[in-house]
């Protein structure tokens, strides 16, 4: 899978999307210090979070102090643009988000929402992870997945 970025070598964006759902545990997980640092260590410079209907507000950061720049919004009509400009996508397990990202041939880590009642969403993510199309994680294992992530495997 190609490691595309938006032209400038320096800016590498991680785009987090929860779609139309409320998935606070994912937003909280990417907002932790350890995940931010892990992403920064991997060479990503920007973290953009689409947080949907969630109520947990991540901490913004300009990234001027030589760390990851963090920004967020709730909804946008141009999710496709964010996906296109991303170097890595971290997404909820909705089939729409998964296939849209894979179609753009972007590296993808899917985080399964364990709070959902009838959780069939994990089926698709796990199957596609087995077929090496993406990485599959849970909110509490996101840090391990990102640290161990080797995009060449996709």
């Amino acid at each position: 899978m190609g490691e595309a970025d938006d032209g400038s070598k320096s800016k590498r964006v991680v785009f987090v999307t929860v779609g139309t759902t409320c998935f606070d545990s994912l937003v909280r997980a990417v907002d932790t210090q350890e995940v931010r640092e892990a992403l920064f260590k991997k060479g990503y410079t920007h973290l953009v979070i689409q947080m949907g209907r969630g109520s947990y507000i991540p901490t913004k950061s300009t990234g001027e102090d030589g760390s990851l720049s963090v920004d967020y919004f709730t909804f946008s009509s141009s999710i496709a643009e964010f996906l296109k400009s991303a170097s890595l996508v971290i997404s909820h397990a909705g089939s729409g988000s998964i296939f849209e990202t894979l179609r753009l041939r972007k590296p993808l880590t899917v985080v399964v929402n364990e709070d959902l009642m009838d959780n069939h969403q994990s089926e698709l993510a796990e199957e596609l992870a087995e077929r090496k199309h993406l990485f599959c994680a849970r909110p509490q294992t996101l840090y391990e997945t990102i640290s161990a992530m080797d995009l060449i495997l996709l």
């Binding site: 089939s95 296939f99 969403q121 698709l124």
Partner: peptide, 10 residues
Amino acid sequence: ESIARVRRLS
């Protein structure tokens, strides 16, 4: 059946 269904029918 939805593509999200891999192992069990809805």
